[in-house]
């Protein structure tokens, strides 16, 4: 959403990200999409070539995109195995109790913070 405000002020933007559905729905002007686990949108850790290619693609898209909502998907892969896709934020029956407890803890923390005045107005 920050990209939208910058763009409205006349500054060309590109977002490099790995959460394409969220970026698309938000109406992001230009997106470089790396289909990698969340955490390393520019490329795999210490893979300087991959990271360099991503930044190059970002500059290219800034100048080649002709219409808003441009998405360039890069061919980078995390590995030949796709298991990581199944694991992130997975909801498995055996984890139900743990997830519920996590949700309760999150809500309790929010209320505690509110009581302490720790919130943005």
């Amino acid at each position: 959403m920050t990209a939208r405000t910058l763009e409205a002020a006349g500054i060309a933007t590109v977002v490099i990200g790995s959460a394409l559905d969220i970026l698309r729905t938000a109406g992001t002007p230009r997106v470089i999409f790396n289909d990698l686990p969340l955490g390393n949108p520019v490329g795999k850790p210490f893979d300087r070539d991959m990271q360099h290619r991503t930044v190059s693609a970002a500059f290219e898209l800034l100048f080649s995109a002709e219409a808003p909502g441009a998405v360039k998907t890069l061919p980078h892969q995390w590995s030949t195995q796709d298991a990581w896709r199944e694991n992130f934020m997975a909801v498995r029956a055996e984890d139900a109790a743990t997830l519920e407890a996590l949700g309760r803890a999150t809500q309790a923390t929010r209320l505690e913070n509110k009581a302490k005045g720790l919130f943005r107005r």
Binding site: L38, G39, N40, W84, F88
Partner: peptide
């Protein structure tokens, strides 16, 4: 982020 699969020890990756 996906703390099971990766890490953020390489600043250049983000």
């Amino acid at each position: 982020w996906d703390k099971e699969t990766t890490h953020t020890k390489d600043r250049e990756s983000y």
